[in-house]
């Protein structure tokens, strides 16, 4: 299994990840090598095996639905790249 440069561009788009044009061939080749390594798993039959998401098969712990966090908007926004009037600023989405 190997990836084309167009496929790499599509994956980068899905990940919203800028990659340099000159690096795309290298990514295509590296990712293809990784996929080759991963196809080794195909040699083992796992039809009857349940997927394992947690090392000890634990489910997420639940808690009561009550507010525990205090509002720290100013504190958290003090490290933001751009804020105004308590809002995070991003480029205009709608014209």
């Amino acid at each position: 299994m190997s990836l084309t440069t167009d496929e790499v561009k599509q994956i980068a788009h899905l990940a919203r990840l800028g990659i340099d044009e000159k690096d795309i061939d290298t990514y295509a080749s590296d990712l293809s090598n990784m996929l080759k390594l991963m196809t080794q798993m195909g040699e083992t039959n796992t039809d009857t095996i349940q997927p394992m998401a947690h090392p000890m098969d634990q489910a997420q712990r639940l808690r009561s639905d009550i507010t525990e966090e205090i509002n720290q908007r100013e504190h958290f926004q003090s490290i933001a790249p751009q804020v105004e009037a308590g809002l995070y600023l991003v480029p205009k989405v709608l014209d």
Binding site: M38, M41, T46, M52, A53
Partner: peptide, 9 residues
């Protein structure tokens, strides 16, 4: 999913 099954093995 395949990797998670292998993880169990």
């Amino acid at each position: 999913i395949k990797a998670q099954k292998v993880r169990r093995l």
